[in-house]
């Protein structure tokens, strides 16, 4: 999934996968901070957003 999305031009860093058990609270915090940081660093996404359907 990550492979093709990035292949298509979605910036690496917009899609994250993680396996967190319900007991791993610190890992959860870490991952969430890391994800938000990396997404913030990229800024608002410009691609793959449909604001209004394009018509002829």
């Amino acid at each position: 999934m990550k492979g093709l999305l990035e292949h298509m031009g979605i910036e690496p860093g917009r899609l994250h996968f993680s396996w967190i058990s319900s007991a791993e609270s610190t890992k959860f915090v870490d991952v969430v901070s890391q994800v938000t940081e990396s997404v913030k660093a990229l800024g608002p996404a410009q691609n793959f957003i449909k604001r209004e359907p394009k018509v002829a």
Binding site: L4, M8, F48, K50, P53, K54, V55
Partner: peptide, 14 residues
């Protein structure tokens, strides 16, 4: 979406 919007077209293809 079912129209010609590029976002929809790409969603279909990927």
């Amino acid at each position: 979406g079912k129209g010609q919007d590029p976002t929809d077209t790409r969603t279909f293809h990927f």
